[in-house]
Design a protein around this nucleic acid. Sequence first.
DNA 1: CGTAACTGCGATAGCACTGTTTCAGTTAGT
DNA 2: ACTAACTGAAACAGTGCTATCGCAGTTACG
Lengths: 216, 216
Amino acid sequence: MGENSSPRRIRADAERSTARILEAAETVLAADATASLERIADAAGLARATVHRRFASRTALLDALAEQLSQRYLGGLAEARVKTAPPLIALHRLTEIVFDLKLCHRFAVQLTAALTPAVLDGLDLLFARLRDTGAITAVDPAWCRQVYLALLHEVHELPTDSPTLASSATAEETEAKINLLVRTTLGALGGSHGATALHSPASAASGDVRPVDHGS
Amino acid sequence: MGENSSPRRIRADAERSTARILEAAETVLAADATASLERIADAAGLARATVHRRFASRTALLDALAEQLSQRYLGGLAEARVKTAPPLIALHRLTEIVFDLKLCHRFAVQLTAALTPAVLDGLDLLFARLRDTGAITAVDPAWCRQVYLALLHEVHELPTDSPTLASSATAEETEAKINLLVRTTLGALGGSHGATALHSPASAASGDVRPVDHGS
DNA sequence: CGTAACTGCGATAGCACTGTTTCAGTTAGT
DNA sequence: ACTAACTGAAACAGTGCTATCGCAGTTACG
């Protein structure tokens, strides 16, 4: 872990700068993924040159950001006890946690491929366990992942202002959003067979318009 | 539609060029929304200058593209008899049609706000009718729209290559994808196998998955 | 056939962003 | 307190894209 390969000592000051840059990059890039480094530096209260000093190139910054994001997701997966807790509870808790890291979902969705394989594996495990308990029926883990992340993105972009409520009801609102997301995800994956069902043309050709009989 | 305000006569040749440009822009921008006009012109088999001749600016091209897309969606809504046909059938048919216009969904999702209000109204009507017939339970039309479009996007990005099948099975594959999308959408929005049909003990154990109205 | 429109090619100007460098001033760490 | 690291400011070169123009050749349309 420790990097002592260079005699150059890394001052705590610099460390704080990189943190501020990453933080600013999250917020700025969430609004506009093509924002310039100058805007990021501006948002961080630093000079543009400093950004280049901390990160060799723009892609390096993006990589670091993705890395940090993956790390947080990984922490969320661990905190939600995805491996051990009852899957439905784990899903709900994970959603809560991820919602707290509501930082750059837009960015995350764009760079879904940039998520660490470990994160993907964790999600896959969660959905596999959900399927084992009968909460969902979708088979393809990739499909489950994509649906969950896409719905997470949409829920996160819902208008924050409740029509009749005051603007201070954020706690209740996020709670409602989390429930909505969990319910919607389960419903979406509840009756479908996932992408692997593509190899059964017979059932597909039947064109069953009516919702799947599958009486639960 | 007819623009005779200018004495300048518009040759049929030029009209074809604009069509080719729009067509190329669809495909190119679908892959990379920040592609340069040169790449678009290249894909259209035209010179970059011609693009600037047909469209005053880049945003003008984007606007025209969004306009055309909205027009096609509108046509699809009409063709699917959204207003008169049984809603489930209309949804299935609309999905088929939209899938044929699989051109620039990525672009469309990015510019969801750029869709003509008429299109949004049409979708809202469809989902309202779906709810009236009990096919879904979700209330907010905007939410239904977003979920449908997001899932459309995800389904469209599913790996086209079936693991064991040859690459020529596109027809059956798209058919299966359409069914998957319809079923997933209905499930997500609270269809027959949605959250309400899930095993209640598990839901109750998860703490609080009460019916969320999430605002009208 | 002849004119006007259209096109490709090339040049040009301008803009925005990235990345590097230098220098003077400030700050952290021993 | 001294040194090395860090920073802001400002310059610089380089790149890629947009947008415009002129010119010569081609094509549609009456």
